[in-house]
Computed example of a mutant assay.
Amino acid sequence: MGESNYIIQYIQKNREHLVNEWIDKLNNLNEKNISNIISDQGFANICNEYINLLIYDYNKEENAKNRISSFTQKLIQLGWTLSFIMDCITEFGKIVFFHMTKDDSEKKQMEFVWDYDKWISPINNKLFSQYAASWQKTISLQKIALEELSAPLIPVFDNISVMPLVGTIDTERAKSIMGNLLEGVVKYRSEVVLIDITGVPVVDTMVAHYIIQAVEAVRLVGAKCLIVGIRPEIAQTIVNLGINLNQVITKSNLQKGIMAALEMTNRKIVSTEE
């Protein structure tokens, strides 16, 4: 293994005992939401994987980096926070220190701390760095997915599309909505677009301003825009705020909006006799 490998050798030789003691420590840590949903066997698997990382990385195995990446991804999926992971690894270091130096002099204990910091800490730092990178990547992918799903323009009939909005609308999201809206109008050759705000909890002056901008932008690319999902409480808020939507066609629900859109495109729904 190389210089100062006695720590790794001790960990390998006493793995089972160290893991069992480590599990007891983990169960007493503060993050009860984690310790309550993972079994002792689950903790044991994670502990053993961590020890494997120490062994493979210390031996400069070629796939050590991939093992660290895979391990951190698993921790993220389990919902382990970086602070909890650091606490866990700190506890493991304390356990190893106690058993390996309990009968040693202060000088020997300091030598152990030096060797541990020299050989084990760099591996831990790699683990922390990889966790941070994996977490950031996961968050970025989730953000992209949410942005793609947050304001889709859905074609429902020829030349008629619907954009359902759900959740709070802020400046950043309004820009995304506007971009998706205009791109969708051109892509689907929409003549009429319905913006459904049923799922928008609050329509204040700022949100109304964004809606008016969207309506005007759609008009400029040659289409018409209807706002649907005007609930009674939303209508009352709009009136109380003095927001002027006189130039905007509004309907109380999507069904009425679809009927209006069909009329605007010279179509209508008729019932047929069997």
Rank of each mutant, 00 (worst) to 15 (best):
L26I: 05
D57V: 03
F71E: 07
W22L: 04
F84Y: 13
D117Q: 14
K118H: 10
I95K: 01
E111T: 06
M86G: 07
M100G: 02
E49Y: 14
D115F: 08
F84L: 13
E31N: 15
H99M: 00
E106C: 06
T81E: 03
N36I: 09
T101G: 05
K118A: 09
W22Y: 08
A44D: 11
N20A: 15
F71R: 00
L82C: 01
D117H: 13
I34N: 13
K102P: 01
S39C: 12
T101D: 02
N33Q: 12
L53I: 15
Y50H: 11
K94W: 04
S39V: 11
K126I: 05
I89W: 01
N52H: 06
S129A: 06
L78D: 05
C47L: 07
T72H: 07
R67Q: 12
W114S: 12
Y56D: 15
K60M: 09
S105Q: 06
F97E: 01
N28K: 10
I51D: 07
L82E: 02
E61R: 04
W114N: 13
E61Q: 15
L127Y: 02
K25H: 06
K74I: 04
Y58W: 03
S70L: 10
D40G: 15
D104A: 12
E91M: 07
I23R: 01
I46A: 13
K60P: 07
A133E: 13
D115P: 06
Y50P: 08
L29P: 05
I46S: 08
N125R: 03
S129Y: 08
W80R: 02
K102N: 08
D24H: 01
T81P: 03
Q130Y: 04
D57C: 14
P122R: 03
F98E: 00
F43L: 09
Y56T: 15
Q130N: 11
W114I: 09
C88F: 05
S83F: 09
M86F: 02
K60C: 09
N28S: 12
Q109L: 03
L82F: 02
N33S: 15
K102Q: 05
N36H: 14
F92G: 01
L26G: 07
C47Q: 06
S35R: 11
N125K: 03
K32H: 14
Y131I: 01
K60V: 04
N28V: 08
Q109T: 02
C47V: 04
N125Y: 05
S70Q: 11
F71D: 08
M100S: 04
T72K: 03
L75A: 01
I89M: 03
E91R: 10
V113P: 04
S105E: 11
K107L: 14
L54Y: 07
N66C: 07
T72W: 06
S105V: 05
D115R: 08
E21T: 01
K65I: 11
L78V: 01
L82M: 03
D104Y: 13
Y131D: 02
Q73L: 11
Y50L: 15
F112H: 06
M100P: 03
I34D: 10
S121R: 10
I89D: 00
K107S: 12
W114K: 15
R67G: 13
C47P: 04
S39K: 13
F71L: 05
A44F: 04
S105I: 08
D104R: 09
E62H: 06
K94F: 06
I85Q: 11
I46V: 15
T101F: 00
E21D: 12
I89A: 00
